[in-house]
Amino acid sequence: MDWFSYLTSGIGVYVALVVFTGGMAWRAWQWSRTPKSPVRLALYPKPKTGPGRFGKLLVDTFAAPQSFKIAPAIMVAALLFHLAALAAFVGHLRLVHEFTPLVAVLGVDGMNTFAAWSGGAAGIIMLVAVLYWLGRRTFGAYKNLSVPEDYLLLALLLGIVLMGDHLRFVGGLHAATYQAWFASLMAFRPAFPAELTSSVTRYALDWHMLFVDAFLIYFPFSKLTHAIGAFATNAVRTGE
């Protein structure tokens, strides 16, 4: 690995994971040590039973049906983006360990084809969603509401997705090559396999990882803490 690869795809990955995990834990701890609102802030109607309230909390957080009614376009973009991001995350787990049962069903070629289609679709959906958000925030009537943080996050996401799509559609390397790199990361001896070192694709990977590292490091200090905070705030809506 050259110094840039080592920085982005080696040591940077560890730093990003430590900051992300520690930062999110710190944020959750910070919230938990702040006293709850003493007054009741629920919205009505709300379910009367505990399980009912929990069910509504899940629906509100994962589907936000009332938001869909008033702003369908952005909510469709948000839902598709989050689902695609989840699919991409699950797909990346293949680099940690091959999805053996799926390979047994689909075969090696079938698995690669499935990964190519699903990963490609996820990458395109995320790209379209990020571009939509960027356009909405830049040219929408409420652009004055936006702050530099909003653009930084979108820029990082755009970088991640563009480079990820490049790896998916242009890179020409198969999962096994990345699995070797991931194995080195998990052994705390980060190194690129020869196939990656000798390919120009490694530059795309390095830039992909640079954006990923920066995104993960910034995440706990950004509005993206809604990933955990939304559960708490939506619980207030149906609370006692």
Partner: peptide, 9 residues
């Protein structure tokens, strides 16, 4: 807690 979360997220 609620206000802090409203401010943060």
């Amino acid at each position: 807690r609620q206000l802090k979360q409203y401010m943060d997220i």
